[in-house]
Amino acid sequence: MSERIEIKIDRDMCKGCGICIKYCPKEVLARSEDLNQYDNHYPEVVSADKCISCRRCELYCPDFAIEVKEVKDEKEEKE
């Protein structure tokens, strides 16, 4: 059984400030081309494999729109 990092972005809660993108130490995130319901550019995960699960993005987001979770990989567990 292994643990996988999941970065959850709540697009419609995001105000597009870009703080998470700026303070991610591993450049995991980038600004989206698309807009959310409030016309904001939300972050997108571009290099998930680089994420070190430091949760800085989550600590710095003023709007609770991004979170990083360590989830158990159930698929592997079954194998």
Binding site: K15, G18, E58, C61, P62, D63, A65, E67, V68, K69
Partner: peptide
């Protein structure tokens, strides 16, 4: 605690009216 848990347990009337990138939300966090 995760952001979603904070939102459920500690935050009311979300999203807030604070401007994008305002430090107010960070203090709440």
């Amino acid at each position: 605690i995760t952001a979603e848990e904070i939102r459920e347990k500690y935050v009311r009337n979300h999203p807030s009216p604070f401007c994008p990138g305002c430090g107010g939300g960070m203090v709440l966090n």
